[in-house]
Design a binder for these strands. Structure first.
Length: 103
DNA sequence: ACCATGACTCCAT
DNA sequence: CATGGAGCCATGG
């Protein structure tokens, strides 16, 4: 689970008001094509409440369609409370909220 | 080591 | 960016 642990670590250090894409996280893990494994790691979600999965979106900024925190509505609320306003389609502006990991 | 699965991403239409 | 198909990565049996 080393890879997953890395994913959780990265996701946990995502600043509030920002979101990261699976591809970006995968890239941070030196595997830009491991986006699937990244999503899988979040799917396991072994640390609910610690891993801000709601800050992790797909390449377009859309929230996970299978979000398991209580519904995408809850996720949208969480994001909104952090300053990330998503649209009716549960999508956020990556150009505004995408996490640059300190770039 | 191989096959199957999955919260992704890219390419083509 | 909507849809459909293929590829890539990591995990589990």
């Amino acid at each position: 689970m080393s890879f997953y642990d890395e994913v959780y670590k990265v996701v946990k250090l995502i600043p509030e008001g920002k979101v990261a894409t699976y591809g970006q996280i995968a890239k941070i893990l030196c595997s830009p094509k491991a986006s699937r494994a990244v999503g899988y790691a979040l799917h396991f979600n072994p640390l609910p409440g610690i891993i801000p999965c709601h800050r992790v979106v797909n390449r377009e900024g859309y929230l996970a369609p299978a979000f398991a925190f209580g519904g995408m509505d809850c996720q949208a609320e969480l994001l909104k409370k952090e300053g990330v306003f998503c649209d009716e389609n549960y999508k956020v502006d990556l150009k505004v909220y995408q996490w640059k990991e300190g770039l």
